[in-house]
Design a binder for these strands. Structure first.
Lengths: 222, 222
DNA sequence: TCACATTTTTAGGCTAGGCTAAAATATGTC
DNA sequence: GACATATTTTAGCCTAGCCTAAAAATGTGA
């Protein structure tokens, strides 16, 4: 199995599984990885044979501790590379995801750890997602919730943007929605409709799907 | 065809072809790439179909201008990555070749050019090999010759080390044989035997094969 | 609980890039 | 110029990772 495929499957499973490590369907993996469903079944079997996944046929997939470790290390490499591309090489933060998607499979542990040191051991990437120390686990979403689930009227601090498209990221940045920025849900349309959000002085309509990608700190007191 | 394979074949052909662009045998390619000869024949046919090589069956292979461009760009990426790993990330110069071998296929043109800028547009890599400006051609061996071909008794300046093994590179460095260093061929054993070389005060015996990997400036007046 | 829609897996194929063994070509020697 | 040897290509096969179409399992409504 190529490192590339192995890491991509484990990473996707980890991301779809969430903090509570619920099982992931093969069709969800197929959609995320842009491959056909039978391709996923085949790969999943191999990864299970390697002891990286647990596969219950017709039910779903779950990472083993070993698989989880590989996934977390891959995500760590991705985020360090992103931060490095922005901070050291001066690439724009909305475009580094695609570069990192390739480089995360090519950088050695030694290189990525040197990058992390040169950056001053940052604890988050340009989109606000956490970077754990080497071999540590990921604290993905402690005290965070999606903007789509946040209460209205309260001033919220943006923690992370789970969004890959440069266009969408630039659009959000134009609205003032960046990690560390402040935002307020003014109104929420029914039936999972768009949100009206206040950022700075202005008021904007925001698609519900996009609101799911914006994670805010859950201490609403601030 | 994967970028990886394509670039590796073109790069190997370029390196084996030399400045005078003499044809390369498929067996030489097979040895350099660590694959079986029939694998090379197969790939060479595909690369020829892509217009990157010219293949005369039973004779050899030659790069087209397009293939040469790809090869040179790949070598440029390799050397910039090496210099970057040494200068910015502080890896040791004898070990970066292996890392660069992987990264050269993963870094985008944008990233490699940013690296080159951050480094201050260097014109050579840690082993003394030239880095051309973007899209320029390589001036591989202007006024250089291998130590194995250099005259005896003359003080020579080391230009480049065409050697990939970290052990060999460290050994040579220990002898004082580094790019920019000075060396003198004291005696040459017959039948392509080992050389006695003087570096600094000391005198060392050097294998003829290794002497071929050491390139020195050809202006022996210095 | 039975029929049906949905989801997942199996079956069988394809391409890339390798491999070995056998056939074809080139080369060196007499 | 013929023949032995070395090199190169062809033929046929393998694995990884993908695909589509068909079969099997799941779960849902009457």
């Amino acid at each position: 199995m190529s490192q590339r495929a192995l890491q991509d499957y484990l990473k996707a499973t980890y991301k779809l599984s969430g903090d509570d490590e619920r099982p992931v369907t093969t069709s969800a993996l197929a959609e995320r990885l842009n491959v056909a469903q039978p391709s996923v079944t085949g790969m999943v079997k191999k990864l299970a044979a390697e002891g990286l996944m647990q596969h219950i046929p017709y039910q779903g997939v779950r990472l083993t501790p070993a698989g989880r470790r590989v996934a977390v290390e891959t995500i760590r490499r991705h985020r360090i590379v992103e931060q490095f591309l922005v901070q050291v090489l001066g690439l724009s933060w909305d475009e580094v995801d695609a570069e990192a998607e390739v480089l995360e499979h090519a950088v050695s542990e030694r290189v990525v750890n040197r990058m992390w040191e040169v950056l001053g051991r940052p604890d988050s990437d340009p989109h606000g997602s956490p970077i754990p120390p080497p071999h540590a686990d990921l604290q993905e979403s402690r005290d965070l919730c999606a903007l789509s689930d946040a209460p209205t009227g309260v001033l919220l601090r943006v923690a992370r943007l789970h969004e890959r498209s440069p266009e969408a990221l630039r659009y959000l940045a134009g609205l003032g929605v960046v990690p560390g920025g402040e935002v307020r849900v003014v109104e929420r349309a029914p039936f999972n409709g768009p949100l009206m959000i206040g950022a700075g002085q202005a008021l904007h309509a925001l698609d519900a799907g996009m609101a799911q990608a914006i994670w805010v700190h859950a201490e609403f007191a601030g």
